[in-house]
């Protein structure tokens, strides 16, 4: 086993042990982080590796939640999660077919449109989604046994996070994974190298969608309700923020970013309670969130992963690590019109 794989497995085991030690609330937070991390890894694959910005991540999570809910309620047991993944893949294909013909900015705006249309459909398609009431979901069952405790969900989520991490780690080393990077760097070059750009982007979107669907399924099972308002635009923004804050293109970064963005509101909440400013907490939370995004982007484009590796490295400043999942340099992708140099 290579070092990053070993590290990921060890950390997961630690996280599972930690979950068993923490109370129910702690387990809930842990599993929220793990789910967010799966979603962030999924988005990182599309945005960080392949360079396509997706504002419909929340919509894909929603599709996963509804699909898992329907399958779970019908007694499909563990199969509910792959079903959720496949449903999201199907959605990704539907979005991708028209949108992936567009490039850069226009792709982003097309996914924005997809996000709003999906949100609308969740509310509209009452026979399937139960509309604004939301779809009530029975507890998840594993080989026929329902999971009731939050600790149980946390362990499932951590296990799946590890699996996601390993799959993506492997994927990056395949030809397909490398072709994602080339497409991100320069579509013309990719074409020149004989890469089918449209197909590559579609595959990235589909794989990304699959993991988003699984994360969504987990959200549905733990909330026990798939609700249209839970999968709004602001959640998509949260996910973009996770991979930005974590460090675009870095897998440990995506996990760190997910943890950071998920735990930040709670941390501010607790701080606020200590200082008795609970009335302004919400504003404070949003302010910190906005400020952090801005500051990270201005001062540390490579995000937490860069800060992390700087801290880890005994040699102090080290902008590039050799070999392993190194944080990728932010690329200069200039929009085609009116940009300045």
């Amino acid at each position: 086993m290579s070092r990053p794989v070993l590290a990921a497995v060890l950390l997961s085991v630690l996280a599972v042990i930690g979950t068993l030690l923490l109370g129910r609330f702690g387990a809930y937070m842990m599993h929220a982080v793990a789910i967010a991390a799966i979603g962030a890894l999924s988005l990182n694959l599309l945005t960080g590796f392949c360079g396509q910005i997706n504002f419909a991540q929340a919509g894909l999570l929603g599709v996963g939640a509804y699909a898992a809910g329907l399958a779970g309620n019908a007694g499909w047991d563990l199969l509910a999660l792959p079903v959720a993944g496949l449903a999201a893949v199907a959605t990704a294909v539907l979005i991708g077919l028209p949108a992936l013909r567009l490039r850069g900015l226009y792709f982003a705006i097309a996914t924005l449109a997809a996000q709003f249309i999906l949100e609308y459909l969740f509310k509209f398609a009452e026979p399937i989604t139960h509309g604004v009431s939301g779809l009530l979901i029975k507890p998840m069952t594993v080989f026929g046994r329902p999971i009731q405790a939050d600790q149980g969900y946390a362990i499932v989520a951590i296990t799946l996070l590890l699996a996601t991490f390993l799959v993506m780690h492997w994927l990056r080393r395949t030809d397909l994974g490398r072709s994602f990077l080339v497409v991100r760097e320069n579509e013309v070059v990719a074409k020149g190298m004989g890469i089918n750009v449209a197909r590559t982007k579609m595959l990235a979107f589909m794989i990304s969608g699959f993991f988003a669907g699984i994360a969504g399924g987990l959200i549905g099972f733990t909330a026990r309700l798939a609700h249209p308002e839970s999968f709004g635009m602001s959640l998509s923004v949260d996910y973009v923020a996770m991979i930005i804050v974590g460090g675009l293109g870095s897998m440990p970064g995506a996990v760190l970013g997910a943890g950071f963005i998920t735990l930040l509101p709670e941390a501010i909440q607790r701080l606020g309670e200590i200082f008795h400013i609970s009335d302004q907490l919400s504003a404070l939370r949003e302010m910190t969130f906005g400020l952090l995004i801005i500051l990270f982007l201005i001062f540390e484009g490579r995000g937490l992963s860069a800060i992390g590796s700087r801290l880890v490295s005994a040699r102090g400043w080290r902008t590039r690590q050799g070999g392993r999942a190194e944080p990728l340099e932010l690329q200069k992708i200039k929009s085609s019109q009116g940009g300045l140099e």
């Binding site: 950390l11 630690l14 996280a15 930690g18 702690g26 982080v33 760190l256 943890g259 735990l263 992390g308």
Partner: peptide, 10 residues
């Protein structure tokens, strides 16, 4: 990285 998270949680 999860240790950090666990520490924050704790």
């Amino acid at each position: 990285m999860k240790k950090l998270i666990a520490a924050a949680l704790a």
